[in-house]
Design a protein around this nucleic acid. Structure first.
Length: 570
RNA sequence: GCGCCCGUAGCACAAUGGAUAAUGCAACAGAUUUCUAAUCUGUGGAUUGCAGGUUCGAGUCCUGCCGGGCGUGCCA
């Protein structure tokens, strides 16, 4: 139930005017207000307050309006009838389904083979997952694509590194037989050290660098030994990625297909580009000019092949678009990546459009800001290294464990993990996606106030009341409601609208902020309005239990959109 | 140089062009005969970077400046 939309439509219908409904910051002004009179006054050449007073009787005719009054420069403030609110709030947890369902491809995650996840993967995973859940909840069909880095230069480096460690392995022989069983196992943690080590060496040692490039070229053109080795560590990486997905409690990706898969589509894409004469040679590279006459910004060419003749990030991304068009035929393709890739995506969208592969206006890039340390620079661990995703989750886990140790609570490991994860994810979702934010481990681990644990705690309290109440009858009518109950009901009725806005404006932070606002009202209600106590009249108890149930339903849905799990106790 | 993003209290962060700029942390003062005190209530703390403009109304839109971040052909 989207109360805002309902009131807005009824009001506009009644006035025959497309007025904008507002929710006053100060609840004392009313439940809603409209600036209709102020807007109309201009055309009518009348005083806004005068006009407002003329409209007032019409508004009072609406059956859900308790009272309406004129205030300030000409606002019309409305108060909704309690009966109506009570009726409406029964379906507060229902999300209105879109009348125009789309197929949406979402590209987020972008994990890498043989390279552990770092803090940079946090936002794409968390925001991407929540946005995916939001899109699905309003009725769209989505496909999530984890566009894995599993094909390019890093693969050459990793293979070269393994050759350096174990030159005796048969994979490196040109006559390697793919049916050979090789007794070689790689430890997942150790594998994650190979790429950084190889990359560092390549920078110092041109010979190693060259060798890795040769390996990459042979690998991509089908060297059986390299490929067999690749499949070995690919499997390990995929397992590691899967562990991360589970640890983060994000939905499984519909496709774990990245650059290697996209590379299969390079030929048909190149054919299209050549037919349209889009590819030019320049400085040894093959490029596509995407500059427009009216561009007033830098617009470098799209790099189809680099000067060594190798495929690039640019070419596989375009091929991936082609692939998605073939497989899902999506109405929209939405990328959720670091903001710094904006130019790349602008170029990609232009090339896709120019080549007729996919239209420009159906692409979207949601760019998120950087996670910074308290010095305002990209977050690093204390030893100066880029923080690993697991380091962050471990730190949160430790903090929760320490917090519990200081109380007489006893919580199991699963519960601790749920709380720690909520702390990290909620903090990430709380911030405007497009802005940088400061990641403060101290703040993350304080668990007071506007935090994930606060939200979980609120849900746990509600569930606890319901559990203790046992079976109860639904109250038929609302008894008179007090301010705490009424405020909570109004907020509950804002759930549907919040989810709709979050989807429409691609703003996952709206959901997180809503969750917090809702929890504040729930806790105030919980504190001021006893439910199961002996001195509470039966009809009041029934009504409050209903309210608790509805609040629990709405909060559970909200928490679910953020991919958090509610523990039994905490 | 050019382009994009950002500037709100000591810190962090919010505000569909609307009314007294919301909230958290930190500080101080309170609340538990109660369903979980990871809670609740209150106090102090803001010339919304600066200067103009548009508007009945600007933190929000426009212009200029100051400050910061990022991007700007072979890294992804």
């Amino acid at each position: 139930m989207n109360l805002y939309k309902y009131v807005s439509e009824k009001l506009n219908e009644k006035l025959g005017f497309d007025a904008k409904l507002e929710t006053p910051r100060n609840r004392e002004f009313g439940d809603f207000s409209t600036n209709a009179a102020m807007v109309m006054a201009k055309n009518a050449g009348k005083n806004p307050r005068e006009l407002a007073n003329e409209i007032l009787p019409k508004i009072a005719e609406l059956d859900f309006v308790e009272s309406a009054s004129v205030a300030g420069p000409g606002f019309i403030n409305l108060k909704i009838k309690d009966d109506f609110l009570w009726h409406a709030v029964q379906s507060a947890a229902t999300i209105t389904q879109t009348t125009n369902p789309m197929v949406i491809d979402m590209d987020y995650g972008a994990y890498n083979v043989a390279k552990s996840l770092h803090i940079g993967h946090l936002r794409t995973s968390i925001v991407g997952d929540t946005f995916n859940r939001i899109a699905r909840s309003v009725g769209h069909k989505t496909f999530s694509w984890n566009h894995i880095g599993d094909w390019g230069k890093p693969m050459g480096l990793v293979i070269a590194w393994i050759e350096r460690l174990h030159p005796e392995l048969p994979y490196f022989r040109d006559d390697f037989n793919p049916n050979t069983l090789v007794d070689y196992e790689i430890d997942a943690d150790e594998l994650n050290t190979y790429y950084p080590a190889a990359s560092a060496l390549a920078k110092q040692d041109p010979e190693f660098q060259l060798h890795a490039q040769e390996i990459k070229a042979k690998f991509q053109s089908g060297h059986p030994g390299y490929f067999a080795l690749y499949e070995k560590f690919l499997a390990i990486s995929l397992r590691t990625m899967n562990n991360t997905v589970q640890r983060l409690n994000i939905l499984p990706f519909d496709y774990d297909l990245g650059e290697r898969n996209a590379a299969k589509y390079l030929d048909p894409v190149e054919k299209i580009l050549r037919e349209k004469n889009m590819i030019y040679k320049n400085d040894g590279a093959e490029i596509i000019n995407v500059k427009r006459k009216d561009d007033n910004k830098p617009m470098p060419p799209y790099m189809w092949r680099d000067s060594r003749g190798a495929d690039t990030y640019d070419s596989t991304d375009l091929a991936a678009v082609y692939c998605r068009k073939q497989t899902d035929n999506p109405d929209r393709i939405i990328y959720i990546t670091d903001l710094r890739q904006s130019l790349h995506f602008e170029q990609l969208f232009r090339v896709a459009d120019m080549s007729g592969i996919y239209p420009y206006d159906r692409f979207e890039h949601i760019g998120y800001g950087t996670i910074n340390g308290d010095d305002g620079k990209p977050f690093k661990t204390r030893d100066g290294n880029a923080a690993g995703l697991d380091d962050i989750l471990d730190a949160a886990n430790d903090a929760v464990t320490a917090r519990i140790a200081s109380t007489d609570k006893k919580l199991d490991a699963d519960t601790i993990q749920m709380i720690a994860l909520a702390a990290v994810k909620f903090n990430d979702l709380l911030h405007d996606v497009r802005a940088d934010y400061i990641f403060d481990p101290k703040q993350i681990t304080s668990f007071e106030g506007r935090t994930g644990p606060y939200v979980l705690y609120t849900a746990v309290r509600l569930n606890s009341v319901l559990r203790r109440a046992g079976e109860f009858e639904q109250s038929a009518n609302a008894v008179e409601m007090n301010a705490d109950e009424r405020n909570l009901i109004i907020e509950l009725l804002d759930f549907d609208r919040t989810v709709q806005s979050a989807f429409e404006s691609r703003a996952t932070d709206l959901v997180a902020n809503y969750a917090y606002d809702l929890c504040q009202l729930i806790n105030t209600f919980y504190h001021n309005c006893p439910i199961l106590r002996d001195d509470v009249p039966a009809d009041t108890r029934a009504m409050r239990l209903d309210l608790v149930q509805i609040a629990a339903n709405v909060l559970t849905r909200t928490v679910d959109l953020m991919g958090l799990k509610i523990p039994k106790e905490m």
